[in-house]
Simulated assay, not measured.
Amino acid sequence: MNDTELVLSAAGRPVGRYVTRPELPARLSPRPYLHPVTTLASTPVTELSPADHAHHLGVGVAVPDVEGHNFWGGRTYVRDQGPTELDNHGAQRHASFQESGPGGFVEELRWTAAGTELMSERRTVLAVELTDSAWALDFTFALTNVTARALSLGSPATNGRSDAGYGGFFWRAPKEPDAPRVFTADTEGEDAVHARPAEWLALAGADWTLVLAGATGGTRRDPWFVRTAQYPGVGSSLAHRSRLTVAAGDTLVRRIVTVVADGTLDRAGAAALVRKAVST
């Protein structure tokens, strides 16, 4: 183990590599990420800097607008102008591991832009064995506003681009010849599940299934951001319709638990595994 990268394991098998200090150009909004992430049978379920979106970095946390600073990567959506290349990229910097091992870690990070620290983060990630063909990635991030003023978090949607409220936890899945199936407990298809909250959401590829649950304490569930036709990716929407304000000194906490399963699950199988993962 070192503080540059570490390998997560479940059921005694490596299932994910976490890179803390990637060497990336500024326009990709440098940040730690998990890649590759695999099933227990070693099937890859993440993609890194694909040709369609070079700023998609496996699994991690990304926010496209923190007080006008881009922590997502790529172009910035500007109202009445559209996607625009701007010199406004921030970076998430690894500070230290409070705990680390093959079963997970607790990490401290700093979110900085234009030479100023805006937020600190405590990130807690666990790899949990569920069955002989499924494990769970339990990912919690706690963002604290370290400035003396309120911070406003936004998205392309809040800046004028409809149905683009992405920002928060994000998982870029591998692109296959056929688009993955996406479904929740009661509906199916990208149009039906995108931009809506749901207890859980499943993304199923040729021989793998991801089942994501927003498991933050209480009843808080952000809408899901979902893409399958253009590219396979699922994330949370911290600023879906309106900007999210974090007061000075306050902390924003979100927990996403993702089942990583071999094979394609049906609704009953997905629901059973995600219940087990969230309660573990």
Rank of each mutant, 00 (worst) to 15 (best):
A229P: 04
P30T: 10
T258R: 00
G73V: 07
F71N: 09
A134P: 10
D163C: 00
S29F: 01
S133H: 15
D65H: 03
E176K: 02
A164R: 12
D186C: 04
T187F: 01
R196T: 12
H35D: 14
R227W: 05
A150Q: 10
P197I: 02
Y18T: 06
V63P: 01
D80Y: 09
H94S: 05
L238T: 05
G60W: 08
D3W: 03
N159K: 15
G218L: 01
D87H: 09
A127R: 01
A179D: 13
R172K: 14
D132L: 05
P32N: 04
S152A: 13
H89K: 08
D178M: 06
G60T: 12
F169P: 13
G68K: 08
G90V: 12
R149D: 14
A204F: 04
A148H: 13
S279L: 11
G115D: 09
S242G: 07
R110N: 03
R254A: 13
S133T: 15
V193L: 05
G235W: 08
A202C: 07
D186S: 15
V125F: 01
G74K: 03
E99P: 08
R21W: 00
S152T: 15
G214P: 07
L48F: 14
L265K: 03
A215K: 05
V59A: 05
R275E: 15
P32A: 00
F170E: 04
D65I: 04
E67M: 10
S236R: 13
F141R: 06
P177R: 10
H94Q: 06
Q230K: 13
R243I: 03
L252Y: 14
P25M: 01
P223Q: 05
W208K: 02
L8C: 10
P44W: 02
H194E: 09
A91I: 10
L201C: 05
S279W: 01
L210R: 02
Q230T: 14
T251E: 13
R31L: 04
T144Y: 05
A41V: 00
T76E: 09
E117K: 00
T140D: 03
S155D: 11
G167C: 07
A229T: 15
P30E: 08
G90S: 07
V45L: 03
D222W: 13
V66K: 01
A26V: 14
R243F: 00
T84H: 07
P197Y: 01
